[in-house]
Simulated assay, not measured.
Amino acid sequence: MPAPPPAPPPQPAAARPPLVAELSHTRVEITTGFSGTEVLVFGATERLLGEGGDDVLVVARSAVPEPMVVRRKTRVLGFWINGASARFRQVPGFYLLTGTRPLHDMMEEEERRTKQLGLEHLQMAAAGNQDEEFRAALLQLKQSAGLWHEEDEPLRVSGARLFRARLPLPATVSTGDYRVEVMLVRDGRVLARQELGFTVNRVGTAARIADIADERPVVYGLLCILLAAFAGWLGSVLFRRG
C-alpha cells in the first residue's frame, strides 16, 4: 500500500496585537433634558501595565476643529465694552487626555511637542493679535466649561493588563463626530495605537428646536419672545392671586 501523504505543517498562531480597545457606546443622544454623560474606553494590552511596564494614553477630541474669537473687556466711562481680540482659526471644541501616568512622566518634552500631545502643545494659531494672554484666556474658558481636560488622575488598571477610562461629556458638548486615540507607550515612545470614534446627535424635541434655530432664525427668535412674554404674564397672574 502506498504511504499516506504527510500531514500539513501546523499553521503559525496569529500574533496577539499589543493593544486592543473599544468604546462603551458609539452614539450619544442629546434630548431636551440632557445634562451630560460619559463614554467609557476600555481595553487590554499584551504586556503588563504600570511601573516597569507599558503605559496607555487616551486622547479624545472633536473630529472637526472650529474657529473661536476671544475678546478682552475694556472699561470706558464706567461701561464694559469689547476691546482687543484674537481669532483662533481652528481649535478643538472638545479635548481630553488621560493615561496610566501623567503625560510629562510618560514622554519627554520633544516627543510631546512633535506629536502635539497635551494642552500646552495644542495647535491654536491666532489671526491678528498674537498676545499669549489670549491663548491663556481661551484655555481657561474651555477648561471652565468642562470641554478641555488633561487628567492627572491615572486611568483605572485591573489585573495589570486591563484598563478603562472615563470620558465625561458636559451638557454643553457640541454635536458632531469625535475621535478617540488609544496609544500604547513604551520607553517614552508610541509603540501602537488604535483609533475609535463616536457621534453626538440631537434627537426628539431638541433636534426640532435646533433645526428651527438653524433654518428659520427669525421664527425661532419670535417664538422665544412669545414664550418669554407668556411666562412673564403667567408669573404675574400666579403671584397676584397669591
Rank of each mutant, 00 (worst) to 15 (best):
P6F: 02
A7C: 04
Q11M: 14
L19T: 04
T26N: 09
V28S: 05
T31D: 15
T31I: 11
F34Y: 14
S35K: 15
T37H: 11
E38Y: 15
L40H: 12
L40R: 15
L40I: 15
G43K: 04
R47N: 14
G50H: 07
E51G: 07
G52I: 03
D54H: 11
D54S: 15
L57R: 06
A60Q: 01
A60C: 08
A60D: 03
A63W: 13
R72S: 01
K73I: 10
R75G: 05
N82E: 13
N82A: 09
S85N: 10
R87W: 13
Q90P: 00
P92T: 02
F94K: 01
L97H: 03
L97Y: 01
T100K: 05
P102E: 05
L103E: 05
H104W: 03
E109L: 13
E110H: 12
T114D: 07
Q116F: 05
L117D: 00
L119G: 02
L119C: 04
E120K: 08
H121R: 01
Q130C: 08
Q130V: 12
E133F: 12
A136I: 06
Q143C: 08
S144D: 10
L147N: 08
E150Y: 03
R161A: 02
L162T: 00
R164I: 02
L167I: 08
L169C: 01
L169W: 00
R179L: 11
V180N: 03
V180G: 00
V182D: 03
V185R: 00
R189S: 12
R189Q: 14
Q194V: 13
L196Y: 07
F198H: 12
V203K: 08
T205H: 08
A206M: 05
A210F: 14
P217A: 06
Y220E: 09
Y220P: 04
G221D: 11
L222H: 07
C224N: 09
A229Q: 04
S236H: 09
V237Y: 09
V237N: 04
L238M: 05
L238G: 01
F239D: 09
R240V: 02
